[in-house]
């Protein structure tokens, strides 16, 4: 298990390194000088040259990437060319916001989707099952930005129940929670349908397996069969698919943060891209990839925790 974890983390680091190489290549490919973009149209050539040197943009590609990683290892993600503040500090300020948003968004969706999927299986073929299926499909086909915009228009603008923008007043937990509701709702919405369908499909598979029949033959209560004997196994394919789709979660966080003007990694990176603020772009991409890789590893380790067969396979690996 330890060996497997180390292997997975190693693979995660490779992904991070690969992504950063690709990002630096993109800087070279995309036309326009970042230093000129940062300084605006009235900058002199001299100023541009100086900033280019400061940003290390005059260095060869590989040297730039190398310098970036050396700096990262010492916790230095570079300096924001607009605000002149350390990128690491800027990210650190908004990172909790994004993490909470992702966690709450995915969390409420999971908490709703698992019982929904189980219910559909228990009431298989009845109107409950059909209603749950219909709900799932319609929810899946709605993109999160549409959900976000409508949620904002209805609940914030029309009804004025919840704030439309921002992340709440500093120090006021109540207002922060209220500011979180709509963005988290928008992020989780599609996931409810997606996860409920996954849970239903894998539960249907599992509930047909012979060991379920054994449990029934011994009079184990049906709720226990569903939750302990069925769901545990059904969660394994659900988690694997979830791990694969986590990239979508992070990108949806980006959109939602922009729509709700909510401070976070997503808002930071979009603003930085628009301004060609490369150090910030590089830093945020690194952190977002890091989050993605960490969540994927967490999902895999969770699967291994649930399934002893996988655990044993890893032990051999």
């Amino acid at each position: 298990m330890l060996a497997y974890t180390i292997k997975r983390i190693g693979l995660g680091l490779l992904i991070l390194i690969g992504v950063m190489f690709a990002m630096y290549a993109a800087v070279f490919i995309v036309p326009g000088n970042p230093a000129r973009a940062a300084l605006g149209p009235r900058a002199t050539q001299e100023m541009i040259d100086r900033l280019t040197r400061e940003m290390g943009l005059d260095q060869p590609y590989l040297v730039q990437v190398y310098n970036f990683f050396v700096n990262v290892l010492s916790g230095n993600l570079g300096i924001d060319v607009i605000s002149n503040r350390p990128v690491a500090t800027e990210i650190w300020e908004v990172l909790p916001n994004t993490l909470i948003l992702c966690l709450v968004g995915l969390g409420w969706a999971t908490l709703l989707a698992i019982p929904l999927g189980c219910l559909a299986v228990l009431k298989r073929g009845t109107w409950v099952d059909r209603a749950a299926s219909l709900l799932s499909v319609s929810v899946i086909s709605l993109p999160y930005y549409v959900v976000a915009i409508y949620a904002l228009l209805i609940f914030a603008v029309q009804l004025n129940w919840l704030p439309a923008i921002g992340d709440g007043d500093p120090g006021d937990i109540g207002s922060q929670i209220r500011a979180l509701i709509l963005p988290a709702f928008a992020i989780g919405f599609t996931w409810v349908g997606y996860l409920a369908r996954l849970v239903r499909a894998s539960m249907l598979d599992v509930m047909g397996e012979p060991h379920i029949r054994t449990a029934r033959a011994f009079g184990v209560p049906e709720w226990k069969i569903v939750t302990k004997y069925g769901l545990r196994i059904a969660l394994i394919p659900t988690l694997s698919l979830l791990a694969v789709s986590l990239g979508g979660l992070i990108s949806s966080a980006v959109f939602v943060e922009v729509i709700f003007s909510r401070p976070g990694i997503g808002k930071l990176v979009t603003a930085a891209v628009n301004l060609r603020n490369y150090p910030v772009v590089m830093g945020t991409v690194l952190v977002m990839t890091g989050i993605y890789v960490t969540l994927t590893i967490a999902a895999d380790l969770l699967i291994a925790r649930i399934d002893p067969r996988i655990r044993d396979a890893f032990r051999g690996a």
Binding site: P210, R213, T214, A217, Y229, R232, I233, D307, P308
Partner: peptide, 22 residues
């Protein structure tokens, strides 16, 4: 109410008769 009380069953395939994750 007979199951697992008055009547117990042993099934054919011991590979699949038990839950693999418990």
């Amino acid at each position: 109410i007979l199951r697992g009380d008055e009547i117990a069953m042993v099934f054919q395939d011991p590979m699949t008769a038990f839950n693999p994750v418990l």
